[in-house]
């Protein structure tokens, strides 16, 4: 199929422009005096945002509620599911387990920074080709993890599945499965996700 059907405006495509817009102001200016706030400067997908946040704000909520970058998902808010996976200075983390105030001057990459519907990142395209998702809610986290683990393997960061720590690390099926296991997919697309990642590994090799 050369041309994709268009979805309705209500399911729209607005966020690409949000990344360029000034950050929406904190939603509760009247209460600032009585709640500790901190100023934090985040660089997200290449754009710098200066935010004044309630210090209790997680990085995840800063992205979703303040910057309206809702591609990063909240599945559990407890570090169990991996839906909120983003890359901070090149390393993947669960954005729900980290306060935004800890990330002043950090470089953050979210799913929106990897590619757009008209210009997909190779991993996004591989997920699409292999139907490596169903409901799509865990998908941004899966894709961010998939991109990050290939870098981890490249850098020789070991995992539980790594055999010989002195040998050159291979992106084997067991390595890929082990490293992706922090990202739950209840729709059960694992077999297809592994195929998508393996395709990228194969293509890069």
């Amino acid at each position: 199929m050369s041309e994709s059907p268009k979805l309705s405006a209500s399911s729209g495509l607005a966020s690409a422009s949000i990344a360029e817009a000034p950050a929406p102001t904190s939603p509760h200016p009247s209460s600032r005096s009585s709640i500790p706030h901190s100023s934090v400067s985040l660089r997200v997908n290449g754009t710098r945002y200066a935010l004044t946040l309630d210090t209790r704000t997680s990085l995840l909520d800063a992205l979703r509620e303040h910057l309206h970058l809702t591609g990063t998902k909240k599945g559990c808010d407890h570090g169990h599911c991996g839906a909120c996976t983003v890359l901070v200075n090149g390393t993947r983390i669960n954005a729900c387990l980290s306060l935004a105030a800890m990330h002043d001057a950090d470089e953050i990459l979210t799913i929106e920074g990897l590619g757009t519907p008209d210009d997909l990142h190779p991993m996004q395209a591989a997920f699409l080709r292999h139907d490596a998702f169903q409901c799509g809610y865990c998908t941004p986290g899966q894709i961010c993890s998939a991109v990050a683990i290939l870098d981890e393997i490249e850098r020789g960061v070991p995992s539980h599945a790594t055999g010989d720590l002195t040998a050159r690390m291979e992106a084997s099926h067991s390595e890929l499965r082990e490293r992706m296991s922090g990202n739950i997919c209840r729709c059960g697309a694992y077999s297809n996700i592994q195929a998508a990642i393996a395709e990228i590994v194969g293509g890069a090799a």
Binding site: L7, T116, P117, Q124, D131, G136, T139, P140, I143
Partner: peptide, 24 residues
């Protein structure tokens, strides 16, 4: 075997789920 028509929105984080509808 047509790939998912909503797939490009989902793999880029542009599919908006309930809690994310800031715009409505």
């Amino acid at each position: 075997p047509v790939t998912r028509v909503d797939g490009p929105l989902k793999v880029t984080g542009n599919a908006r789920y309930a809690y994310e509808r800031h715009e409505v």
